[in-house]
Amino acid sequence: MQFTIPMLHSAITIMTPLLLASMGGLFTELSGMLNIALEGLLLMGAFCSIIFSYYTASMILGTLLGIVCTMILSAILASVTLNLKANVFITGLAVNLFASGMTVVLSFALFANKGVVVFDNIPPLPLLGTPELAKIPILGDIFIGHSAFVYLSWLLLALCYFVLYRTPFGFRIRATGLHPEALSSLGMRPNRYRFASFLISGFTCGLGGALLTLNLGAFVPNITAGKGWIALVVIFLGNKKPIGLLIAAFIFGLADAFSNYAQGALNIPSDFILAIPYIFTLLAMIGSSIYANKKGAIES
């Protein structure tokens, strides 16, 4: 029981890259495209952010440039998918493959190192929060003392909600997924909104990726380790709603944090413990669909 609070704290750390990636994925999903490429985009963001942080000696500038690179990759993905009418699933897989190869090739070209690249000039991410705030019992322990990315992701989530539900742009994105002809009959181009949503995916994945590497001050090949896929799960588990993403990402983060803590406490094979997050998320998925099913039963 004494681990509950650090576990919750850890859950928030784990959920942040997932939340960021899934926000961008939410835009593509709502515009009617299944974005398999989140994993590759995250990896691209992770790599580019840290190398630019290294070269510019500024984490903020580096992150911004990393985001730009990721958006370029997602723009390529979008244009091949939309203009060449390619299957979004294959192009997504292609982006994942491309990112995993390209990051290593670039890392070799730049640093003559295909493995872990440690960047000495990158300081640890500052943890935010004043000591007074941290003193608030329980809540302070859980919510205070994370990196700026964590709080930024919450701000972005609010922005994401605002854009989707309180701006014309968001309504058009949603209309693109729901009824693209309704847009085109009014002279708007659905593909433009799909393109924009891919760019947004690039943006949030770039940011999410930056967190993964800046957090360590190092780039490790394949550092994303499937987080892009989990972000996709988060979108579905979150019922394609911004607030749902928060809940779903937290559920996964908590399950993962639990499995991390459980490894020390439970004497069962590690493979089983590593499977906990997936099984737990699966159960949550089933639970939420049972709930949705009961709620929306019998449609005429």
């Binding site: 060449l84 299957n87 294959i90 192009t91 491309f98 995993s100 190869g101 290593v104």
Partner: peptide
């Protein structure tokens, strides 16, 4: 190296699914 091979494969993937080339 196999990273380069992966990049090449991804390009093939990109092109292989382009419906537009059919159309």
């Amino acid at each position: 190296t196999f990273e380069i091979a992966a990049i090449v494969q991804s390009i093939v993937f990109f092109l292989i699914s382009s419906e537009v080339l059919f159309t």
